[in-house]
Write a protein that binds this DNA or RNA. Structure first.
Length: 849
RNA sequence: GGCGAAGUGGCGGAAUGGCAGACGCGGCGGUCUCAAACACCGCUGGGGGCAACCUCGUGUGGGUUCGAAUCCCACCUUCGCUACCA
């Protein structure tokens, strides 16, 4: 039956609010997306997205991460995979504690309230999480195993306590080095200025795994993340060389002074030594008459780490200690300086300074009038030339000078030869140094996993025995309105007997960095309530490594590196057999505020997803976020354009629910396009649907959401044009509509489910969710075309187009091309040299003269 | 300073060696309406031309190629990360 002008009035308006909550409830009721982890009949797919911090409410950034991830899950299910998409909360951490202090409540209550709200919001986006497996890290059921693993780490030498200068945030307490951001050294979480303090703290020995962490074999991670981790680990290979201190009036000499260098070939050019201010020999080597000056310098250097280092005028400063060292290769006596451009924590904390071949040493030598001796020079250069800047080349084109027995050797070879010689003399050897430091996990906070250690006056730090775990965080704490750790005042918590000797002892009050929690949580998702161990070995074997991980790139050298370390350490403890946590990693970009700044409550540039959902519906918000641009790019938030997506879904709705409807204000509505037969139209609908299916499948596989949505818009535009015409409702129409809905289902799950159920009902068929349907197959025959339009270029410039049969031979095509008026005109007086056929896609006539 | 990513209409972006600007927003014109909103239809990179069409055009300058937004070299700009690592 054909409808007429008033069709629109009769068609039902598209009203997402009328069906979205209904389907969310229905899916939950049917447990449509709980994962049967023991189902071995289907291929498994572990899809993981970074769990959120329960800050109170989801913001649009969470949607930006989760929505496409959910679409991946749905898409994979349509391909028959048993998909596991868990969710949980990174529930320990400072904001809960701050809120607790401010509002005089328990952090646990604040956190629980927030998690409830965020669970509700996740449901409102239609995300298909495996809620049965959810976890929260503040649950003793979870953090118990942090503690258990910590004690195992202790037993295996992977956890230790040490006193060293640590980065200290006035709010967060100690920080790992990677949690200090920027030149001005701000805390990564609260932005406060970070200071240095000497404290006994707990470390995890990540450096044991430095070399293995440099190997990314077998994992498909974005290049930038691999580069960042590689740089962070910062492996340098060189040599360690043993200098000796020289005897002087105040000092007997003869002590070893080890240096690390990546340029052992320049050893003969060392004209002074530099110790870091923290170097243990500074005191002993300082001459009495230099003492005042050196002490002043040390004090200034210590202050400098706290003062703005940006103004760090790069200018090299230092002070002569009043002692000398002996260069082992030539016995030369060289002065020992103390300078803060040498870092205490890297290498040996001491360097041999070769001003001729190191820019920093050069600047220092210039400033303090120290000798500069060339030892590596270009072949033709004058060895006595006075350098204007450090000469740092050392390839095969350079040659050694002023280098004793090595003079004249190619610089590239001298490196090896000198190290070999040092080794044979017992004066040095190959050495490797890393920038990576051990991971400092102590935090002087309440709201975290208590470090399970008991300090005994006799036995020292003793791990809490397994049977006594978990060490529970006391629920009632007194903040006294201050930010310091209330555990240090909680006598009930503190007082404990030593598990070894039974005498009165005290508990450790530090808690763990929350990055410990996130370093293994994906293993726990598989068996969140397992009380036999941290992980279920069988499920871990079957389900990990994670097939696909999605989340932000800001964790490149923190979470993503710690997780790799934990996986390897857990492997070495015999808990798992995997080497790597995440097979494939995708870093989506960040949604910024409309002002281009990072979204934050304090800036007032956040976007409330609940509000958008109320106005446009969840599917529109999901699709709009996917349509914005490439997923790995992110960008400033701009709501202009959300109406376009809404309009698209409205058209999908109208096409599917009212195929015979016509647009009263379009005089051509209801008529086939001019010159098109019904048979043409039927072919075109099929071709469009199957071509879209072919292309959209590729987009889904590559997470190219924006082009995926664009192609579905194109398909809807084709169908829109045929709506109300004589081909609407024919089998080809129905097929195209069906394909469009299936392709759209992972991205816009509600509207497709609603339409799907209506279509089934209209046909008198029983309901079955669109989300358990199989992804359709492309019919290649539908995509094949009889004719094709070929662009014609003359000398690379577009001049004409011609429509020809697909099977036409190149010779026939050339005859047609050169006979075209526009081509003849473009050739003019020139001569056709050759004709390029670009794989049937284009013809280019090359003309000369 | 180092490492990484990116520069395409008014805007988000598409095209990764073959028709630049898909798709969408915005804008302009129109239909519907008493009117507005919604919806719908058409046009929309710059310049020239009544028009067919011509011409310029993907940060800048060179190069490779029959053909370059795409590959190579140099430079400029923006954004991330890093910051004396011997």
């Amino acid at each position: 039956m054909t409808t007429t002008g008033n069709a629109r009035a009769r068609a039902e308006r598209h009203e997402p609010a009328a069906y979205e909550p209904k389907w969310q409830a229905r899916w939950a009721e049917l447990r449509l997306h709980d994962t049967d982890l023991d189902d071995t009949s289907r291929e498994r797919f572990y899809l993981l997205t970074m769990y959120p911090y329960p800050s109170g409410a989801l913001h649009i950034g969470h949607w930006y991460i989760v929505t496409p991830t959910d679409a991946i899950a749905r898409y994979k299910r349509m391909h028959g995979f048993n998909v596991f998409l868990p969710i949980g909360f990174d529930a320990f951490g400072l904001p809960a504690e701050n809120a607790a202090i401010k509002n005089r409540i328990n952090p646990r209550d604040w956190t629980e309230t927030n998690m409830d709200n965020m669970r509700r919001q996740f449901r409102s986006m239609g995300a298909t999480f495996a809620w049965e497996n959810q976890l929260a890290t503040c649950d003793p059921e979870y953090y118990r195993w942090n503690q258990w693993m910590f004690t195992k780490f202790m037993e295996n030498g992977l956890a230790y306590r040490a006193v060293s200068p640590v980065d200290w945030c006035p709010n967060d307490g100690t920080l790992a080095r990677e949690q200090v951001e920027g030149v001005d050294r701000k805390c990564w979480r609260c932005g406060a200025k970070v200071e240095k303090r000497e404290l006994p703290q707990w470390y995890l020995r990540i450096t044991n795994y430095a070399d293995e962490l440099l190997n990314f074999e077998g994992i498909d991670w974005p290049e930038p993340i691999r580069i960042m981790q590689t740089n962070w680990i910062g492996r340098s290979s060189g040599a360690e060389v043993v200098f000796k201190t020289a005897a002087s009036d105040h000092h007997a000499g003869g002590e070893e002074l080890r240096v690390f260098t990546t340029r052992p070939d320049t050893l003969f050019g060392a004209t002074f030594m530099v110790l870091a201010p923290e170097h243990p020999l500074v005191g002993a080597l300082t001459a009495p008459d230099r003492r005042a000056e050196v002490d002043a310098y040390l004090a200034a250097a210590a202050a400098k780490t706290e003062i703005d280092r940006l103004s760090a005028d790069r200018d090299k400063t230092g002070v002569y200690a009043g002692s000398d060292a002996i260069n082992p290769v030539n016995g030369a006596r060289i002065p020992v300086y103390v300078a803060d451009y040498v870092l205490g924590g890297y290498g040996t904390g001491a360097i041999m300074a070769v001003p001729a071949h190191d820019e920093r040493d050069f600047a220092f030598a210039r400033k303090y009038g120290l000798p500069i001796i060339n030892v590596v020079m270009p072949r033709d250069a004058d060895p006595e030339a006075v350098l204007e800047s450090a000469f740092t080349e050392h390839t095969i084109d350079e040659v050694m000078v002023h280098s004793g027995p090595f003079t004249g050797r190619p610089a590239a070879d001298a490196w090896r030869e000198i190290v070999d010689w040092l080794r044979s003399e017992g004066l040095g050897d190959d050495a490797v140094t890393y920038r990576l430091r051990d991971w400092l996990i102590s935090r002087q906070r309440y709201w975290g996993t208590p470090i399970p250690v008991i300090h005994c006056p006799d036995c020292g730090p003793v791990p809490v025995p397994e049977a006594d775990l978990p060490v529970l965080l006391p629920d009632t704490v007194d903040y006294q309105g201050s930010g310091d750790n209330p555990l240090t005042r909680d006598e009930a918590f503190l007082a404990v007997d030593c598990p070894q000797c039974g005498r009165a002892a005290r508990r450790e009050t530090d808690t763990m960095d929350t990055f410990v929690d996130s370093s293994w949580y994906w293993f726990r998702y598989l068996a969140p309530h397992n009380d036999q161990g941290p992980v279920d070995p069988t499920l871990v074997e079957q389900w990990t490594p994670v097939d696909q991980y999605t989340g932000g790139a800001e964790h490149a050298v923190m979470h993503l590196l710690y997780s790799r370390f934990f996986t390897k350490a857990m492997r070495d403890l015999g808990l798992i057999s995997q080497n790597e946590p995440f097979r494939r990693l995708f870093n989506q970009g960040q949604i910024l505020g409309a002002d281009g700044e990072r979204m934050s409550k304090s800036r007032g540039n956040t976007v409330d997803p609940d509000d958008l959902v109320a106005r446009h519906g969840a599917d529109t918000v999901r699709l709009f976020l996917m349509f914005m641009g490439p997923w790995d790019q992110g960008g400033p938030w701009s709501p202009t354009g959300i109406g376009g997506v809404s309009k698209f879904l409205g058209r999908v709705w109208a096409i599917a629910t009212d195929p015979h409807g016509r647009e009263p204000s379009d005089p051509l509505s209801g008529q086939l396009p001019a010159g098109e037969t019904e048979a043409d139209a039927r072919d075109r609908m099929r071709a469009a649907a199957h071509r879209t299916l072919r292309d959209v499948t590729v987009d889904y596989e590559g997470f190219r959401w924006n082009t995926m949505v664009a192609k579905l818009m194109e398909l809807s535009n084709v169908l829109w044009r045929y709506r109300g015409t004589s081909v609407a409702g024919l089998p080809e129409w129905d097929e195209a509509v069906r394909l469009m809905l299936l392709m759209l289902a992972p991205a816009a799950p509600h509207i497709t489910e609603e339409i799907w159920s209506r279509l089934l009902e209209a046909r008198g068929e029983p309901w079955e969710s669109i989300h358990v349907q199989r992804w359709p197959e492309v019919d290649e025959r539908a995509v094949v075309e009889d004719t094709r339009e070929i662009p014609i270029q003359v000398n690379g410039r577009l001049r004409d187009k011609v429509t020809v049969d697909v099977g036409i031979s190149e010779i026939e095509l050339e005859q047609i091309v050169v006979a075209r008026d526009k081509v003849i005109a473009a050739i003019g007086a020139g001569k056709v040299v050759r004709i390029i056929h670009a794989g049937g896609k284009l013809v280019n006539v090359v003309v000369r003269g």
